[in-house]
Amino acid sequence: MSVDKDTVNKIARLSRIAISDAEADKMVGELNGILAWVEQLGEVDVTGVEPMTAVIANKLRLRDDVVTDGDVRDKVLANAPAKEGSFFGVPKVIE
């Protein structure tokens, strides 16, 4: 599988990273180099192998249903680039 410039532009859009034409051209080569290299994984016989789910044997712990957090509005908003009263502000979204 190899990517062309359209694909690179599509991936950039999906990633929400603006990309110039020149950057896209450069990225085509880089991504193809990396992808061609990782494709050697296809050689590995993985018959009957389950994909890894937990790196180290461990069980998911579940939390009790109690309110232990929240009510920290000032902390939550402290670093906001555009704080509007108690809200985060973003460019107007038309739904």
């Binding site: 009790d64 109690v66 929240g70 509005r73 939550v76 908003l77 108690s86 985060f88």
Partner: peptide, 30 residues
């Protein structure tokens, strides 16, 4: 561990996890 209460002041029932601050992690509610 933030409250699910309805009708609270904006962004008051929000933890650092809910606001997706860097390094915050989810722990599921049984």
């Amino acid at each position: 561990g933030s409250s699910t209460g309805f009708g609270a002041e904006p962004n008051s029932h929000v933890s650092l996890v809910d606001a997706a601050m860097p390094g915050m992690l989810p722990v599921p509610n049984r």
